[in-house]
Design a protein around this nucleic acid. Sequence first.
DNA 1: ATGTGC
Length: 484
Amino acid sequence: MSQYPATRLAPNVWEIPVEAKYGMNVPARILASETLFAGMDEGVFNQITNVATLPGIRKCAICMPDGHWGYGFPIGGVAAFDTDEGVISPGGIGFDINCGMRLLRTNLTSDEAAPKLSALMDTLYSLVPCGVGSKGVIKLSEREYREMTVSGAKWCVERGYGRPDDLKHIEEQGCIANADPAQCSSKAVNRGLSQLGTLGSGNHYLEVQVVTPENIFDPITARAFGLGIPNQVCVMVHCGSRGFGHQVATDYLKIFDGVMHRHGLRTPDRELACAPFACPEGQNYFRAMNCAANSAFANRQLITHRIREGFAKIFRKSDFHLGLEVVYDVAHNIAKLESYPVDGVARRLLVHRKGATRSFGPGNVQIPEDYRAVGQPVIVGGSMETGSYLLVGTQTAMDDTFGSTLHGSGRTMSRTKAKQIVRGEELRQSLLARGIAIRTASLSGLAEEAGLAYKDISEVVATVHDLGISRRVVRFLPIGNIKG
DNA sequence: ATGTGC
C-alpha cells in the first residue's frame, strides 16, 4: 500500500495529486483493481510520481495494472511529452528497445498437433537460437546491419525471410520512420551483428498455444483476426532488440548525463536521465531508438521464418495449408509521435510506452485495413503456466490513456526470490504433467519465470477490459514453450 | 532486458 495520498476517481482508477510530491507537473494515475492496487509495490508509487515531475509531461503519468518497479520509470508506465517543451527519456522506453510480442495463427488443431508436439518443440528449439549470448543464423557486415536498422522487417522480407503480406500485420509495417543508423555507435552495431533472429533470455520466449472454444470471448473480432477454429494452434513470440538496443540505451543514458547538466535539468532520480526532445542529443537518441526498434521487428520476422520452416518440416504440409500467418506484432517498449487533444487542442506528443501496448480503436489509419473496422490487435503475454490474451484496442484508450493498454502479466516476485522457491527441473516436470512441453537453455532461468512470480493474468486483463481501454478477444493456453 | 555486477 502506498504512502502517497490516492483518490479513487472511478472503478479501477486511482489518482495521486500534484500536491503529493514536490515538482509534480501533472497528477499520476494508477489503473488497478482494489486487489492489484493494494498489492502494488511502493516503487511504483515513487516512480510514477517521479515521472510526473518531468518537463513537458501532459495530462497525467499513467501506470497500467501489470505495473511494477523498473529502471527510472515503472514497467507498465505511459507518459506523453510535448514535442517542443518536453523530454525523451531512455528509462521511459526500457533497455530492451521494442521488446514486443508477435502472434502467429495456424490452420492446425491441437488434436492434429499433439502426436508431433515433442518433435515440433525439438525442431523449433534447434531452429531458433536462444539464451544469453546466443548467436543467430545469419551474419551481417556492419554496413548491412546499419541498412537493416532503417527498414526493419521489410529488410528481411526483401531477402526471402517471410512474405510481403506479413508486413501489413506489424505495427508501423515493421519499418518505423525517423531511424538514422549514423546515430548508433559501432559498439552497439557490433553487439547486434550476430544476434539477428535470436530469442535472447530472461522472460523472452516462443510459445505454442491453443485456443479452446470456451476461451473465445468475442467470436466476431476473433474471426477478423483469423482466429476461431475450435482448438486452433497459435504461436506467440516475445523478444526484443538484444544487445544492440541495450547498447543504444546505455550509450544515450551516458550522453544525457552531460546534456541534463548543460540544460540545467534536474530529476528526483538519476535513472530518469532525459534530454529535451527538440535538442540535438534528444533527436539523435530518437533516431537511434528507432533503429533499435526496427532491429527488433526484423528479429521477430526472422524468427517467424524459422518457425514456418519448423512447422513445414514436422507437419509436411504446404505452407499455404498450414496457414501460418502473422496475426499482428506489437512493440511494448518504445516512444512514438502521436497526436492527442490537450486542453481541447490537438497536439503532437511523444508517447513513451514502457511495458505498455498501443491500443488504437476502430477506424485509425495506423491499423491494417483488414482489421480497421474492429480495432488494433493487442497481444498480452502471460507466464508460461497461466496463458496469454489477445485484446482489441478501443476509442476509450484514445480518450483516456494516449491510446495505450497493458502489456503482460507483471512480476510480483524478484528473480532471485523465485529461484529460491522454485527448482527448474521440478517445474519442467510439473509443466510436462500439465501438458506443457518446455525446452530451455537454462533451468534456473526457467525457475525465474514460474507462474507464481507473476500477477494473475486474468485479473490484470479484467481491469483493462472493465476500464474499456482494450477488450478481451481470446485467451491462449500454452502447450509448448521455448524459454530463452 | 543485457558479451548480467564499479
